[in-house]
Design a protein around this nucleic acid. Structure first.
Length: 872
DNA sequence: AGCACGCCGACT
DNA sequence: GTCGGCGTGCTC
């Protein structure tokens, strides 16, 4: 932790700005900085203008982090310079900014442009965008400090004591505390001391209010000064290395000449350092069982020196991948050639690689990255969920070594900071990460690869609710970066754009192992019922599992629901156990005999008898992965089962553990949810069972057909990836659905043609943009009133612009999940049918952001999502 | 949001 | 006339 003292470079004490800030206009040419202040209120989320003081004219640049006085009290807070100008509105007074906070700007011009673009595209605040590009490792801590006034300090000791004696008790207390603390005390500290004195809770707001009033009086009485001070922190990990301060031959002489006495431990340390040039201090302590004190005393005797270096922790993956020599096939080579040959073209389009599962897309990406690297260009490799792709990470690390960095939102702020720093220093040249890795501060970014780009994880769920695909496209366009999207099952929207020449479409039709895709066998579950099979496994699937296990092969079973049963109810009265905080039925987890809400995490023990009617017909309904596991263990004696879902992989390392076990064949059946679909590659998997395609198909969302097709295709692709032929059993009640029909033959083109027609008819993406505004709050009445008033303001403004037809607005209506975490949720949905998207966005922005406090109550939350993933 | 200021009732 | 609690409005 580095602390920068609150003394400004012009020698001014922060807070003491009475004269300095409002100087008469002088000779130097004036410049002003427009800044965004770091404040999480949307009311302050606009550009503020500050005059750049003369002594900083040369230094302040666009993108600098600066310290500015803000508000009536001129509290110093962090701000970011967005642009610099010499033209400002007349008749306005501007404060001067205090100082810069870093030597160099943290944002480049292009970053500022990106922030503007994201803000406008997704209707979020500047600060939302800034926190994406700038890890929170830096912060400015502002605090008030109390000291004696100049008058008081000028008094000699006797007069001072007399003066203090004449004051009231509470004043004396404060003056004494200031003197005790070397004439400087933090307000916070003073409050604490006062609380101890009066034996009350320091968090009591009345105390601080009273104290503040008293302090203000004392300031008026010219007893004390109150001013702001600050500390600037950088969350950088540093490592301390220790070495001898002189050549090891000279040590003994130095010790005896200066008559230095050394303890045994200290001697050990010196002996050790004689033969080891430099060692990390903590290692030394461990190795020699030494204590910190012996080291500091050596330092005090000037025998050793510390060398503090930046620390960069490179996270190690636990999943081990064997190195293997890869030779690209014709199709792969073609893809690589196409992309690399155009890398320096000015007007290149983004690339979309549509390659079947197992077509070796990762190898293609690596070749592209390798080429870029040789041209001096850095690469970003996005994956949907970093924790699910240990295989990809280890492949990249194996090939490129230490220059590969990993970045995702689960890193600590410190770790994020380290990674960003290593990127700036050029230590990391290739970054693999989740969508947030897109904003890494590379010096010469040349390639962005987005793998499995159809995944919904590329759309952020929290502000800014950006889509990594869209941002990637924007960056590629603005900075001439090579953008490569890859998937076996492209999203319908992007594929439509590819068909319309927005992308270079590259198809890889053959699997890398030259084997055909595994055959998908369709099982009609309606028939199973007539045959008397009420279980979750059809006879066909049971036979296939048995055969695979007997042949010592592995099986993957896919079911898109975790837990044991999807709800618990009483057969007699129909009572359904549901979450106390949300409008959701509880999922049954048999292992702990609890019902759990998958939205807020609420849990309750499921009783044997119904709490409504008292009958004992309480039973879980539907199936989840937990029940599948139980059934498999019951039916197949030789099954060694692993389960992979959110319940079994929530802890760090558990996923690696499961994958490693399955890879080492400690288990032969892997049951899981959609996690399974993401790039797993096991050579002995010959059978994939999809237990219920209907569960996904019937999901109430316009993308559910697309998602179902993608999941079937992706999960099927896990089979037969090596020399052994694979097979897939697909169970469904809806055998005639076009999604199922197309998926059977891996007919993506056919599916796309079917689906795009539906999209066209109902005006869904890609033919339309959709904006969802959700108003939520603890009081349902308040939420309803608020969303109604929003609707009224909206229609009023639209009518003013001559729009009378409001068919493009859906709602206001309760959300599909009408309550989450005690918050009632109502929604307005907009499609840009008969209205220009920018006009619509402008009006929504005006109502929900600019005039928020007029339209909405402060007790409700407003969430705006442009082209949301789902509209629950 | 977070801060300063000003108003108003309670208490000396 | 002070003290202290709370509501209000602004932030370059």
């Amino acid at each position: 932790m580095i602390l920068v003292k609150g003394v400004l470079s012009n020698g001014l004490v922060v807070g003491d700005m009475s004269e300095a800030n409002f100087k008469e206009q002088s000779m130097y040419s004036e410049k002003y900085a427009k800044v965004i202040v770091k404040n999480n209120s949307i009311y302050t989320d606009n550009l503020f203008t500050y005059k750049i003081p003369e002594f900083l004219l040369e230094d302040v640049q666009v993108g600098h982090r600066v310290l500015v006085p803000f508000g009536r009290g001129n509290k110093p807070i962090e701000a970011y310079v967005f642009f610099i100008t010499n033209k400002v509105e007349d008749n306005m007074d501007f404060k001067e900014l205090f100082d810069t906070l870093d030597e160099h700007p943290i944002f480049k011009e292009e970053d500022i442009n990106l922030i503007h673009w994201i803000k406008n595209r997704y209707l979020c605040t500047y600060m939302d965008c800034i926190s994406l590009l700038h890890p929170k490792g830096y912060k400015v801590d502002s605090f008030k400090e109390i000291s004696l006034s100049q008058d008081m300090e000028n008094l000699d000791a006797d007069s001072l004591y007399m003066k203090i004696d004449s004051l009231s008790k509470s004043r004396q207390f404060i003056i004494n505390k200031i003197i005790e603390n070397k004439n400087k005390i933090k307000l916070e500290r003073l409050i604490k001391e006062k609380a101890i004195e009066e034996n009350i809770n320091p968090k009591d707001l009345r105390l601080s209010s009273t104290l503040n009033n008293l302090l203000l009086k004392m300031k008026e009485e010219n007893l004390i000064d109150i001013h702001w001070n600050y500390k600037s922190q950088k969350n950088e990990k540093k490592i301390c290395y220790i070495s001898l301060s002189m050549d090891h031959d000279l040590i003994d002489e130095y010790v005896s000449y200066n008559k230095i006495r050394l303890g045994d431990k200290q001697r050990d340390i010196i002996e050790f350092l004689r033969y080891n040039e430099e060692i990390e201090i903590n290692d030394l302590i461990k190795l020699l069982k030494a204590s910190k004190s012996s080291i500091t005393s050596l330092q005090n005797k000037n025998l050793v020196v510390f060398n503090i270096k930046d620390y960069y922790r490179s996270p190690k993956g636990c999943y081990d991948e064997n190195k293997k020599e890869i030779i690209l096939n014709e199709e792969q080579k073609k893809a690589v050639d196409k992309v690399t040959s155009e890398m320096f073209d000015e007007n290149k389009k983004p690339y979309m690689i549509h390659g079947v599962t197992g077509s070796g897309k990762t190898e293609v990406y690596m070749e592209i990255i390798d080429y870029a690297l040789k041209q001096g260009l850095d690469s970003i490799f996005l994956v949907p969920e970093i924790s699910l792709t240990p295989q990809t990470i280890s492949r990249l690390k194996n090939r490129f070594g230490d220059i590969v960095g990993v970045f995702h939102s689960r890193l600590s702020e410190g770790e994020k900071h380290d990674v960003f720093k290593a990127i700036k220093n050029g230590k990391i040249r290739i970054l693999i990460g989740a969508r947030s890795a897109l904003f890494a501060p590379f010096n010469s970014l040349g390639v962005i690869i987005i793998d499995e780009f159809h995944e919904s994880a590329y759309k952020s769920e929290k502000n800014p609710k950006f889509s990594a695909i869209e941002v990637g496209k924007y960056m590629a366009l603005k900075r001439n970066i090579t953008l490569v999207l890859g998937s076996a099952t492209p999203s319908v929207e992007e594929y439509y754009r590819a068909k319309n020449n927005e992308y270079n479409l590259i198809a890889i039709k053959e699997r890398a192992n030259k084997r055909p895709l595994p055959k998908i066998e369709l099982v009609d579950m309606k028939n199973e019922l007539t045959l008397g099979n009420k279980g979750m496994f059809s006879y066909d699937l049971q036979n296939e599992i048995k055969e695979a296990l007997d042949k010592n092969n592995q099986v993957i079973l896919f079911l898109n629901r975790r837990g044991y049963g999807n709800f618990v109810s009483c057969r007699k009265c129909g009572y359904v156990f549901s979450c106390k905080n949300c409008d959701i039925s509880l999922t049954y987890h048999k292992h702990q005999n609890i019902g759990r809400c998958h939205y807020c995490g609420y849990e309750e023990i499921i009783p044997k008898t119904c709490p409504e009617c008292g009958s004992d017909y309480v039973k879980p309904f539907g199936i989840g992965t937990e029940k599948v596991e139980e059934e498999i263990k019951r039916i197949f004696e030789n099954a060694k089962v692993l389960r992979m879902d959110k319940d079994t992989t929530s802890k760090k390392g558990e996923l690696d553990n499961i994958l490693n076990k399955f890879k080492n064949k400690e288990a032969n059946v892997l049951i899981g949810t959609q996690m399974l679909s993401k790039g797993l590659d096991f050579k002995d998997v010959t059978l994939v069972g999809i237990l219920s395609a209907d569960m996904m198909l019937n999901f109430p969302d316009f993308k559910s057909f697309e998602t179902t097709f993608q999941l079937i295709t992706q999960v099927s692709g896990r089979a037969g990836r090596s020399d052994k032929e694979g097979k897939v059993v697909l169970q469904t009640y809806d055998t005639d659905h076009y999604v199922i029909r197309r998926a059977l033959n891996y007919d993506f083109e056919g599916f796309y043609e079917d689906e795009i027609k539906v999209r066209k008819i109902f005006n869904y993406a890609p033919f339309n943009n959709m904006i969802s505004v959700v108003v939520s709050g603890k009081s349902e009445k308040l939420v309803v009133n608020n969303i109604k008033s929003m609707y009224n303001s909206l229609t009023y403004l639209l009518k003013e612009r001559g729009i009378e037809d409001f068919d493009f607005i859906l709602g206001p209506s309760p959300c599909a999940i009408s309550k989450i975490n005690q918050n009632y949720r109502y929604q307005l949905l907009f499609k840009d049918d008969n209205i220009e998207i920018n006009l619509l966005k402008g009006i929504i922005k005006y109502i929900c952001i600019t005039k928020k406090e007029i339209v909405f109550d402060k007790d409700v939350n407003i969430s705006i999502d442009v082209n949301p993933n789902n509209i629950l």
